[in-house]
Write a protein that binds this DNA or RNA. Structure first.
Length: 270
DNA sequence: ATAAGGCCCTGACCGC
DNA sequence: TGCGGTCAGGGCCTTA
């Protein structure tokens, strides 16, 4: 389940592999994977384009092309993007292929087909609804407090809301709330200034540790270089239901919030 | 406006 | 062994 640290790892590892290479041809196997434009147009438009820069915004990857357009990819749950030599055959779960002038092929593989690809003139038409980047200097504790004000939904649900803050998903939301010692079931508006500051610090700290570990490799995710991420070894609560809290020994509890598994320590988090 | 639930998808896993 | 049921969850959509 790629979240900000996993997508950031993707961008860092794929950038040097793709920079300056040109698309020779494209194939789309599962039409719904290409959200915009329609797949036939997409194939025509991407042909001949060269990859210039490569950025991340929230959980989106943005490939800048030489004609000013952008190829945007969201991996959702099980998406993978990998550069392979020409002799590697696409399997049944590979839904888009780009042939490059280096002789390599970029494979988009996604068993659950939740991921989406766009080719757009202006990325902001797609990304303008996103909240701030967690590491943006303009994102302050006061800003976070304002975004949570008046919200009755659980703080867990609000952390997952990409319009409030971009990039946090289920793993890093649970880990952030544990580090900040905040009960995930609390209403967003109930957080004090002090708790909001603690959460602000915790989100950045957990995401940075995730990036440093090249992400969390659970059942599906692995970075494009193949070697697994390591942050799963540092999880304090995520998928540790009934196991003792590392801090106090209380069994980690699991509840459902916003239709997502939520893990927390009932003693440490209030 | 916000909040909550459904939906898309398939593989892994569980109990029988 | 086979099989049905359940779970995993990101983001968009509909409903209230």
């Amino acid at each position: 389940m790629p979240e900000l640290p996993e997508v950031e790892t993707y961008v860092r590892e794929l950038r040097p592999q793709l920079a300056g290479k040109r698309v020779v041809s494209a194939q789309v196997g599962w039409p719904r994977i290409v959200a915009q434009p329609d797949p036939a147009q997409f194939v025509g438009m991407i042909r001949g384009r060269r990859f210039d820069d490569f950025l991340r915004r929230g959980k989106y990857m943005i490939f800048g092309l030489d004609n000013g357009q952008s190829l945007i990819v969201h991996l959702r749950m099980t998406g993978e993007l990998r550069l392979h030599p020409a002799h590697v055959e696409a399997d049944q779960h590979t839904h888009m292929l780009l042939e490059l002038d280096s002789g390599e092929w970029l494979h988009y593989r996604d068993p659950r087909k939740f991921g989406r690809i766009w080719l757009v003139e202006d990325p902001s038409t797609l990304l303008h609804k996103l909240g701030p980047e967690p590491f943006d200097p303009d994102f302050t504790p006061a800003d976070l407090h304002e975004r949570l004000a008046g919200r009755s939904a659980s703080i867990k649900a609000l952390l997952l809301n990409q319009a409030i803050l971009a990039g946090v998903g289920n793993i890093y939301a649970d880990e952030s709330l544990f580090l900040a010692k905040i009960d995930p079931r609390r209403a967003g508006s109930s957080l004090s200034d002090e708790e909001t500051r603690a959460l602000h610090v915790a989100v950045r700290s957990v995401l940075q540790a995730g990036i440093d570990g090249r992400g969390s490799s659970l059942q599906n995710y692995a970075p494009p270089s193949g070697a697994k991420g390591s942050y799963q070894d540092q999880h304090q609560v995520f998928r540790r239901t009934d196991q003792p809290c590392y801090r106090c020994g209380t069994p980690i509890q699991r509840v459902i919030l916003a239709q997502r598994s939520t893990h927390f320590c009932p003693t440490c988090q209030e």
